[in-house]
Design a protein around this nucleic acid. Sequence first.
DNA 1: TACTTTTCACCTAGGTGCGAAGAT
DNA 2: ATCTTCGCACCTAGGTGAAAAGTA
Lengths: 231, 231
Amino acid sequence: MFPTVRASFSGLGSDQRYAVLLDIVPVDNKRYRYAYHRSSWLVAGKADPPAPARLHIHPDSPFNGEQLKKQVVSFEKVKLTNNEMDKHGHQLVLNSMHRYQPRVHLVKWREGMMSNGAFLGDLESELFRTFIFPETVFTAVTAYQNQLITKLKIDSNPFAKGFRDSSRLTEFERETMETMLVEQQYIRPPLRPFDLEMASGSLTLEEKALLQARAHILGLRSPFPSPNLIG
Amino acid sequence: MFPTVRASFSGLGSDQRYAVLLDIVPVDNKRYRYAYHRSSWLVAGKADPPAPARLHIHPDSPFNGEQLKKQVVSFEKVKLTNNEMDKHGHQLVLNSMHRYQPRVHLVKWREGMMSNGAFLGDLESELFRTFIFPETVFTAVTAYQNQLITKLKIDSNPFAKGFRDSSRLTEFERETMETMLVEQQYIRPPLRPFDLEMASGSLTLEEKALLQARAHILGLRSPFPSPNLIG
DNA sequence: TACTTTTCACCTAGGTGCGAAGAT
DNA sequence: ATCTTCGCACCTAGGTGAAAAGTA
């Protein structure tokens, strides 16, 4: 998955241990199509049957709170596919032409959380907290619908170096990109700190520590309601 | 390191958790040289100052006892070097032209065994058991001293495929190799099960479980007192 | 002479977008 | 028309031994 989801954390207990997870859930129940002549996405009916939801546990888990406060957690190894039957089952399955919301989960580490080296696959009965950054919503595609996205990705991915000479962003295109990014700040819900839940007298210390956790999104944002990659 | 050290285990508690480690220690206090015309190793004086001892923890650690009984533990990622200052410090440092004994350690898993994701670096104050397979002794070199070793390694390593056509082992060489391997069985201490230590009344359950553990070496053995690789 | 380091061609392994071909 | 799949050239990244060059 590129751009990579990267998050930093604050407000958590130094002595606690946490798993950090990522999953990707549908934004709505719609299918989209791209109207090329209008350069915009249109609703094209109801969503296809959803793919099986999978959780990606960050391979450096468990982190201790100390680490997590200093270090950026980068989900570089997340792979996306539209094929449920893909080899290893370690990839997140999406439907093309649907909109998705990545989510980051901070989970209190529990012994036996892994069984045979594989995560159990759901968060039921775990103590956790979910962070959602609306500015990371994207549309899954099998081919880019927008030339600027193609160029942006060629410019910023070392594996696409072979295509750079013919596709570097022009001065004008860079400015267009900047403008779109700025516009995005208005269209989308702004970044805001998460509300601290009402304190309840019956919380354990571990629960209180989790409630004070904060996550901050880093790195590239999806620049517009526009294709991101599958593949 | 190739051939890869591979071990299986038996006799350990299903509910226990273990780290599996590998290190490589000097066999003696000697330096060797290779007498080419005699095709044999000769003592060439006292050993050079020993390189700093490093422990390689198997990256799949911790294993639970259940896994460990079914699954072969393969140290595919162990890297050897003769340069103490090598980049990451994740490699085992050996002196060329010295003889070495790989060792496998089975360590009772303890919370906090890892500190900041890096193993503490020694086994003091850990509950552990060491397995030594004398048939895996080898001499570290920077260049192979024996043509058959070269050919064996080219034949069995996918990354050396580019050299195969010109260096496949002939029928005669294969037989020579077989013969040397068989002779090795007599020259070297035979494989034998480890003696169960005298039972003491003051052992904890965890200690008893560790004492019953067995390890079994698998995979290629060093075919003769002959170079293995550094690099 | 004997050993070590460096550079090189040749591999494995796998991440890119392109464009042709296929599917609906 | 629109979207998807597949083979491809082009990359990154790094594991091989051969041979040349370096060291002592």
